[in-house]
Design a protein around this nucleic acid. Structure first.
Lengths: 201, 201
DNA sequence: CGTCTATTTGAATGTACTCAAAAGCGGTGG
DNA sequence: CCACCGCTTTTGAGTACATTCAAATAGACG
């Protein structure tokens, strides 16, 4: 592991827990660097996920296919996010989800066995992942709540204000899927919004 | 803490991690027992959640109110589930959710400070909560996915097979809310299903 | 410039919601 | 034991939000 690649990861860790230099070195020693090309999969449905994957650069979409073969975006990943299928990784069972890189993507990976070992030797790292998981869970709960109480337009407008970077970097039809609407309907929502803004001037 | 109340909790813990007798005693020493009556709130919106709450008996609904004042059920809790608003507990900020007992409910509670202390002194307990959180997160992800790819009827039928105990113990209008449909529409789904079954005979 | 993919449009359709009212159900008191 | 009350569930008509399908347009990339 070169230290420069792990810089943002270490910053994330330091923000949550305090590690000594040796402990940071131990963490770094377990990380493997890897680069995926545009279109490649970090996880494919049916695989058993062997790694936790941290994004250094690039972008990733996580999606699954329903019975009719329609794609549904579960989440987007960009720099300094962790991606994968936690269900598969945690239980070492075949994944339901796919994680595909939408451009050249550099990652750091931590294997299942090394994760276990780190948890044993370094409870502070366990704490780091607990905090990560807490945040992810809270976001997930919020998303459920919003899907139930907001209209498609409201969800889109909220997404615009909360994740403007995502709007720029991911195609609209994927954002539609993430929000749980068809690409056609999202398009008509955008027209509606644009029309209203025009009327104001 | 009387040991009999903590029996199911200890069983849950033992299933996940191995504790020595002293470690179990340490955990028990932090737990406070409390009984809520029908209609009482474990958490109210606006409160800062000071405890993690484990259900020994009874039942609880967790819900939030949207802008129009409509209730949305976030989750149901029965024996041996943990309830509350993790967002509020973890960050010690005011809760968005309410957790209300629907009958006499006995609980065990672990304060924020004691939780922190346990995490420090007993990493295995931290592991236990990490595993708990993993399961909760995975369920939450599944729920999002299902809300996007299944019809209301399919979600209801899946709920029937996965949580028959819940169907018996919670009123239909709450289940409707949990599934993200109106009580009227769930009623019409049930009629549909009943009609089809009648036709088969 | 042509090809491939993403976005937009519009009409017809469907799934789920709103509102209002009736029916069912369980408990309580006269 | 029945009548009444409050709460839950059912019904039905009208409506709205969102989907499907088909086709046109716009953008991106080699």
């Amino acid at each position: 592991m070169q230290a420069d690649q792990a810089k943002t990861l270490l910053e994330d860790v330091r923000r949550a827990v305090k590690l000594t230099a040796e402990e940071e070195a131990m963490l770094l020693s377990k990380l493997r660097s890897r680069t995926y090309l545009k279109g490649q999969y970090i996880v494919q449905e049916g695989d058993i996920v062997r790694f936790q994957t941290y994004l250094v650069s690039g972008k990733v979409r996580t999606f699954y296919l329903d019975r009719e073969g329609n794609e549904h975006i579960v989440s987007f990943g960009i720099e300094h996010w962790w991606v994968g299928d936690l269900c598969s990784f945690a239980s070492q069972i075949p994944a339901d989800f796919n994680a595909q890189c939408l451009e050249k993507t550099e990652v750091l990976q931590l294997s299942y066995a090394d994760t276990e070992q780190l948890y044993e030797e370094l409870p502070k790292i366990e704490r780091f992942f607990l905090l990560l998981l807490q945040r992810a869970y809270i976001k997930s709960q919020k998303r459920i709540v919003r899907n139930h109480s907001l209209t498609a337009r409201e969800r889109y407008e909220l997404f615009l204000t909360e994740h403007p970077e995502m709007v720029e970097r991911f195609p609209q039809y994927m954002i539609a899927s993430y929000l749980g609407v068809t690409k056609e309907f999202l398009s008509s929502i955008r027209r509606q919004i644009a029309d209203e803004e025009k009327k104001l001037n």
